[in-house]
Every structure is written in structure tokens, then in C-alpha cells.
């Protein structure tokens, strides 16, 4: 039985339809995938049935008829292994993504760019960047969260050891602070190192926001719960908030609520699908299709991912927030689909 809870609200469907039309008229590759299966008629009737596989951004730079100029940029995913995604963002898309991030994070953390607080990045200043390749997603996220903070303090040296001077500064007073880092980096180079050195402290009135890189963390058997309890034990920080987002859909991230669920927001939505790609019902794990209503310079508005997760409910979360709430459970097992032609 298909659960209507897994569908989109009417207003989001309308916006999605408009985005489909926009990318259809402006992006040749998007148009080809629509025409090949005659999906044009579905734009209005079933807009959520139209999606691109997120890996297409690894093999192609998909653009929606936007001129390349000094204001446009290519965002590159930070993965160390395999091919990287390359996202073509023009000024308009970038600005709308920054605004969305500001609104989503601002509301969740009750922070405002007008009252900036000290900003600590659990990462190194020297993230390897080859500028000719584009802007690294990690760098972009650090800068994105900087909207709420004063100039960033980097807690890790270039060799990923903890910069003790910055750490001292972090724990020297009780004023509210914003800490940000990639889950994997926070876990491996900060939390593990604190354990090794037998250090723990209290950071009152503050926030740790972390996301991305969770695939590696899960691989090591570190669940979100375990991560949280480590953070509580070592940093005793007031708020530890996870988010789910992807470089292809910068800005419209899904933030974790006080009850540990991820929530959709006005800029995003999420759909879970079965193995036959039907909508899955509530509490049944499904393949994640992630929707962002922001991208206009590239067709990244509706993406089928290789993650799986589960819809937990609609409007009923104990945190009080409305809309869908869900959990991400991990990465689909990579059943390697091989061809006779693949020797390697």
C-alpha cells in the first residue's frame, strides 16, 4: 500500500513542475532523459516521478543554459575516492542557496547574522584545494555556516592534529559559540584525539553542527547516537545537531530536530522508494530521492541517491515542527552491477 504521507504538498509539487519545465527547456541532458521515456506529460501529474541519478553529476557537468561568466563557479565534492561531483552554480542559484541555508539554520539554532557569535571549525585551514578544479564542497560548507559566526577559528593544524592554542581559546569563556565540522573529521581527528589525550571539557550555551562524511563514520560502526554520546561525554556541549545534505543540493539541507529526526523544510523535500521505485510506506526503509527547490543553473532539483532511509511521520514529531520527518539509515549495499565488458 502506498502511503500518501510520502508524497509532496501541492505547493511543492507546483514548484517542482516549474523547475522540471525550466530544466527541460534549458538543459539538453535533462530533456533527453525526459523524452526517452516520454515523461513530459508527467511534469504536472506526477512531478515527483521525475528524477536524475545523482551520479550523473560525476560524469557530466550539467548546465541549464546559463552563461559561464566570472560570477559562475563549479563546486566540487570533497570525496577522496572515486569520481567527484561537479556542480555548476551561477550567481542566482548560489544566492538562493545561501539564503535558504541562512533561514534553515537560523531558525533551527535561533541564530541570526546580525548577532554573530564566535565560530570554530573542526577542520584544517589548508583543505587541499586545486582552484582550477573548482570550489571544494567542504570549504563551501565552512564558509556557508560562517554567516552566523565571526571570522573562523580552525581547530585542526594542517596535519589534522588539534591546535591546542585554538582549543584553549575555545574553552576559555562561557559565551555562546558555533562549532562546525564534517562528521567524519570531527569523529576521527577531534573526538578520538581528545579520548587519546584524556581531555574533556564543557562548552556551555553552544552548538555543534555536523554533517556529511557520515558514510565513513557508519562504516566504522559509529551511529548518530554513539556520536552524540561521545560529544556529550567529551565536550558537554548544549546542542549537537546533525544535518543531511548533498553537494548537488547545497543550501536546502535537512536538519536534525531536538528529538533526533531529520526534517524537511520549505526549500526541500524527501521521498523514499522501494526496489521497484514505487513510493514506500511509512516506517518502511526506501531509497532516498532528495528534492531541492533551489537549483536553477543545473538540474539538481530532484535526485535519486544511493542512500536509504525511512519516513517516520508527518506533522507529528514531538519536537513540534511540521512536515515530514525521517531518518537516514545508510548507504545501499553496493551490489556491483558488472558487465561482461568489464575486465577491471
Amino acid at each position: 500500500m502506498i502511503d500518501s504521507l510520502n508524497m509532496l504538498t501541492d505547493s511543492k509539487r507546483e514548484l517542482l513542475t516549474m523547475l522540471h519545465r525550466h530544466h527541460y527547456s534549458n538543459c539538453r541532458e535533462f530533456q533527453l532523459t525526459i523524452d526517452a521515456l516520454n515523461l513530459y506529460d508527467q511534469f504536472e501529474e506526477n512531478p515527483e516521478e521525475i528524477f536524475l541519478h545523482s551520479s550523473l553529476f560525476k560524469s557530466n557537468i550539467l548546465r541549464s543554459n546559463t552563461a559561464i561568466n566570472s560570477d559562475s563557479s563549479i563546486l566540487v565534492s570533497s570525496g577522496t575516492s572515486g569520481q567527484r561531483s561537479r556542480i555548476f552554480a551561477d550567481r542566482e542559484t548560489r544566492v538562493s542557496q545561501q539564503r535558504a541555508l541562512l533561514k534553515i539554520v537560523g531558525e533551527r539554532l535561533s541564530l541570526s547574522p546580525r548577532h554573530r557569535i564566535p565560530y570554530y571549525v573542526i577542520d584544517t585551514k589548508d583543505i587541499l584545494v586545486d582552484k582550477s578544479q573548482g570550489i571544494q564542497a567542504r570549504q563551501a560548507a565552512i564558509m556557508g555556516f560562517n554567516m552566523f559566526g565571526k571570522s573562523p577559528n580552525y581547530l585542526l593544524n594542517s596535519d589534522f592534529s588539534i591546535d591546542l592554542k585554538v582549543l584553549e581559546k575555545l574553552i576559555s569563556d562561557d559565551q555562546p559559540k558555533l562549532l562546525f565540522g564534517f562528521t567524519w573529521v570531527v569523529y576521527k581527528y577531534f573526538l578520538m584525539e581528545l579520548i587519546k589525550q584524556g581531555i574533556n571539557f564543557t562548552i556551555p550555551n553552544s552548538y555543534l553542527v555536523h554533517g556529511g562524511g557520515w558514510k565513513k563514520t557508519l562504516k566504522e560502526g559509529v551511529s548518530n547516537d554513539k556520536f552524540k554520546s561521545l560529544v556529550t561525554q567529551l565536550l558537554s556541549i548544549t546542542h549537537c545537531i546533525n544535518y543531511y545534505g548533498m553537494i548537488e543540493q547545497t543550501g536546502s539541507i535537512f536538519m536534525e530536530c531536538s528529538h533526533g529526526y531529520l526534517h524537511v523544510n520549505q526549500f526541500s523535500d524527501i521521498i523514499f522508494r522501494t526496489n521497484t521505485l514505487e513510493l514506500s510506506s511509512i516506517n518502511n526503509p526506501g531509497i532516498v530521492q532528495s528534492i531541492s527547490l533551489l537549483p536553477k543553473s543545473y538540474p539538481g532539483h530532484s535526485l535519486l541517491t544511493e542512500d536509504f532511509g525511512v519516513l517516520r511521520g508527518y506533522d507529528g514529531c514531538k519536537c513540534g515542527a511540521n512536515g515530514k520527518y525521517f531518518e537516514i539509515l545508510g548507504r545501499l549495499n553496493k551490489t556491483i552491477v558488472r558487465g561482461c565488458s568489464d575486465v577491471y
Partner: peptide, 17 residues
């Protein structure tokens, strides 16, 4: 889904590519 979902997503990817 966790076990068999990747064939479906991979098939989508292959076709779109």
C-alpha cells in the same frame, strides 16, 4: 532495499548515462 536497492538505482543511472 539496503540489500537489493542498488541494482534499481544503478539501472536508472546506466539508462540516464
Amino acid at each position: 532495499v539496503q540489500e537489493y536497492g542498488s541494482i534499481s538505482t544503478e539501472n536508472i543511472r546506466k539508462f540516464q548515462e
